[in-house]
């Protein structure tokens, strides 16, 4: 399983809609930007977002003798992507599966996909602490997993669920690399006043409480949302934005670890 993959990083959050997939795709693009070969595996089977976010909807997976060939974003073959979205005939088709089928699919994604030599494999997950997470955690016992990056938004109702995910990681022995606080404050483009729509500082306080690194705070930046649908990295398009600064920090942190 994943024999040619040097490092595996899981992006987790107990809560949905906090930006796991956005952080996963932009982190993959940022790691590629610094010269690494990267894979991105989307194990959100009921709500895959990665194909849309990278503008790869409609790509088809082909089978070779050694297994499924992931989708490469360009001819340089430096970013390989796998998602159930590539296996659906229609983008509106629901995947109505109970746990055992989801478990089999995730095992196949990890064992039957022909991941080439990769410096990093980023795994994007659905919200919760159930089948998908238990399966991936079980598989991670057989491969060198570096740990998990936790994404949260600052309000209490999100933090409640994220704390459960942190307990999951601690109980199952997944190393916590740190917390990213997303959607922290919105700067009005008209008057430049900042409104903390979903509160602020919650991720920082949680990182302090559970004593894991705070990897950065990302504001609500509609310019980042506009990049959805392409493989444009925030580091190229918005190099001075807070998002780019935080991503550079995370890349440095990961490279130093590995």
């Amino acid at each position: 399983m994943l024999d040619k993959v040097k490092n595996v990083i899981i992006v987790l959050s107990g809560k949905g809609g906090v930006g796991k997939s956005t952080v996963s795709t932009q982190l993959a693009l940022a790691l590629r930007h610094s010269g690494h070969k990267v894979g991105l595996l989307d194990i959100d089977l009921c709500g895959p977002s990665v194909p849309f976010l990278l503008g790869l909807e409609g790509s088809n997976i082909y089978q070779c003798d050694e297994g499924w060939v992931p989708i490469y974003t360009d001819a340089s073959k430096t970013l390989a992507v796998m998602s159930i979205g590539f296996l659906l005939k229609n983008r509106t088709d629901p995947v109505i599966w109970r746990g055992p089928k989801k478990t089999m699919m995730i095992r196949q994604f990890l064992t039957d996909v022909k991941w080439e030599e990769l410096d990093y494999l980023i795994i994007d997950t659905p919200p919760g602490t159930s089948d998908e997470h238990i399966t991936v955690m079980e598989c991670m016992r057989e491969v060198p997993c570096n740990g998990a990056i936790i994404v949260t938004t600052p309000q209490s109702v999100a933090l409640d669920d994220v704390r459960k995910e942190i307990t999951f990681c601690k109980k199952t022995g997944i190393k916590l690399l740190g917390i990213v606080e997303n959607m922290s404050g919105f700067v009005c483009p008209n008057c430049t006043n900042c409104t903390n729509i979903f509160s602020s500082n919650g991720g920082v306080e949680l990182a302090h409480l559970v004593q894991i690194p705070h990897l950065g705070t990302l504001p609500i930046d509609p310019r980042v949302g506009v990049l959805a649908g392409s493989t444009a990295s925030v580091l190229d398009e918005l190099p001075d934005s807070p998002t780019a600064q935080v991503l550079r920090g995370i890349v440095q942190h990961l490279v130093a670890l590995t």
Binding site: I96, C188, N193, P222
Partner: peptide
Amino acid sequence: KQQIPIVGVIENMSGFQCGHCGHSSEIFP
């Protein structure tokens, strides 16, 4: 597919009005 009648769709978080200047922004465009 499950034949559950849908009453309808509610769109949440549509538009944000700045409390300082009243300017309306689409946070999730």
